[in-house]
Design a protein around this nucleic acid. Structure first.
Lengths: 189, 189
DNA sequence: TAGCACATGTAATATGTTACATGATTGA
DNA sequence: TCAATCATGTAACATATTACATGTGCTA
């Protein structure tokens, strides 16, 4: 049911075609929030339109239909935003993997954590570029669409990076204590 | 497809019945990683068993079947852990809502952010209790199952709390600048 | 003019939710 | 003994993925 509100929310920010919305779901920011394929998006747009929450605002070449949110749609979106999110529905494969790290041998866990650390650093570099480009715009319009989300994303990656460093430290600390070959084996990687 | 590995991972930590696994998916830590209902869990356990990745290790009263992971299952789990997670599949309703905050009026956004701030502080209090209870155990066995996950959860809530404070500040800063009634209206809440 | 990106649609399959269904054990 | 919790199963429905399908407009 959230796909409906995800689409409504994106259209509340700016009008777009199904194609453009599909691209947004593939793009970097939407990566952390929601995801859908075009085969799901197009039928849902039809439903939203027949419910009067969005409407075709422009027809372009190649059969392109640009949708805009209606007043009624904006109201429905606002209503949903003020309902209590049911936090019971999280499904995050990456976090699942973090949970399951503890089922691995310490050397294996350390290898993976090192990869995650590297990955989070790469992502932070990427984010830095986004902030550099959008910075001036976000300075003048502080509540613009991407800004809040990007800042949340940046902080989340920092958290992941710091946590990975801490976890690696924990593994090394444990290895030092028991004095087995684990530490040496893991540190040669 | 991840449910399979979620179950395998939980069983790698300790043997459990379908009922116990269902409870784990409803529990606090699993809230942030994965979620499933018993109607999905029982059939998947049957499949895992017929694939030889888990086996019934004990039969108890009321038809209880406790499953244990097999060597083969442990291998499959490890293999999955080392595959690259496809980060394209995130679906997190809460983060979606954070994204869509910017579609609201500043006063509405501020109201919601204040609620999120409160919620994150409550969650951190809860986490503090978990750490208090499990602390001694985690001190002696640093890589135990819940520890890594709990620490990640704690840090994530801190990040949310700090981000919410920052976002509220941004809204207030914008309101001060334009000098309209927005600030007063929002600050009376 | 050929290849690529734009642009949409739908059918078959897989995954996940809600609702219906049944029965056993335990503790008040 | 009765209510709650333990314990599992499955059918109907909703949601999401993969694969198949078709055609347009731009640009090199």
């Amino acid at each position: 049911m959230s796909l409906r509100y995800a689409l409504l929310g994106l259209l509340a920010d700016e009008s777009a075609s199904g194609y453009v919305l599909t691209k947004k779901f593939e793009g970097s920011l939407q990566h952390y929030a929601w995801h859908a394929k075009h085969s799901q998006i197009y039928p849902e747009l039809s439903k939203l339109a027949s419910d009067g929450l969005i409407e075709v605002s422009e027809e372009g070449p190649r059969g392109r239909r640009t949708y805009a949110i209606t007043d009624s749609g904006r109201e429905v979106l606002r209503g949903w935003m003020f309902t209590r999110p049911d936090s019971g529905g999280v499904r995050n494969e990456f976090v699942l993997r973090l949970f399951l790290l503890a089922t691995l041998q310490p050397t294996d866990a350390r290898t993976l954590l090192t990869a995650y650390l590297q990955e989070s650093e790469n992502q932070l570099d990427q984010m830095a570029k986004i902030f550099e480009q959008a910075g001036p715009e976000w300075e003048s319009e502080p509540m613009s669409f991407g800004h809040f989300a990007a800042e949340y994303g940046r902080r989340s990656f920092e958290t992941l990076r710091d946590w990975a460093r801490w976890a690696i430290g924990e593994i090394d600390r444990a290895a030092e204590k028991d004095g087995s070959g684990t530490r040496d084996a893991s540190q040669t990687r």
